[in-house]
Design a protein around this nucleic acid. Sequence first.
DNA 1: ATGGTGGTTCGACCA
Length: 269
Amino acid sequence: MRIVTWNINSLRLRLPLLARLCAELQPDIVCVQETKVPDDLFPADAVRKLGFAHIQHRGMKSYNGVAILSRVALVPLDDTPDWCARSDCRHIAASFDLGGQPVELHNFYVPAGGDIPDPEANPKFAHKLAFVDEAHAWFTGRDNRRTILVGDLNIAPLEQDVWNHRQLLNVVSHTPPETTRLLAWQACGFVDAMRHFVPASEKLYTWWSYRNRNWTEANPERWNRGRRLDHVWVTPDLMASLRDMTVLREARDWPTTSDHAPVVVDFTP
DNA sequence: ATGGTGGTTCGACCA
């Protein structure tokens, strides 16, 4: 069972790249964020042609939007909160069968939080912190079993999740109020599945800014200034099923691609 | 300290 999470930054614009991803990786389930497509305009036919007969999507005009594209049957999970009472299409969940038992899959797109890391001065940052607190509280109140949580969480929690820890300590995505909250949410019942495969002492990124041009090895000044904003968490009862994890870094070099790379995780039943 | 790029939608907002 291969699951991919990818902030695709416009599903309609990048349908050809989704096709390429599927041709190269043959994923069973793809969780996408920032689809930027309202539900009535969702390109369901094109997605079905890629082999995903089972689709759950929650979108709005212009912003946000999440979807789960699956080759295997999905049972939608509808009793999820309206985070921060905004109806802004940042979470969708469903369960599917893994080895004869259901697994619950949550796909999140956490608010980016704007530029100023001060909740008093920046309502977007306050929203981000409140969103993570709410999600933490909701999962804390549940019996988390056989659950996978993926998505663009827009926070790089560990020192080696950014290209320069000290330099980014006051940059939104890596500030202590964010990283502390994210790790507290994770600790309420999850294991970091990416760090299960790559030790915390090694650099690991999933996002490279569009604004950093010429980020090639030939340009060491700007090379590889990444952050790990995308995550895969699992409940401990699924750790024995974890088989492999890859950040498809090469996808960040595809023409007209997203600023996020897909994260691929393989499970065995 | 600033501005750098990209998507949605057509001026401004968001990332």
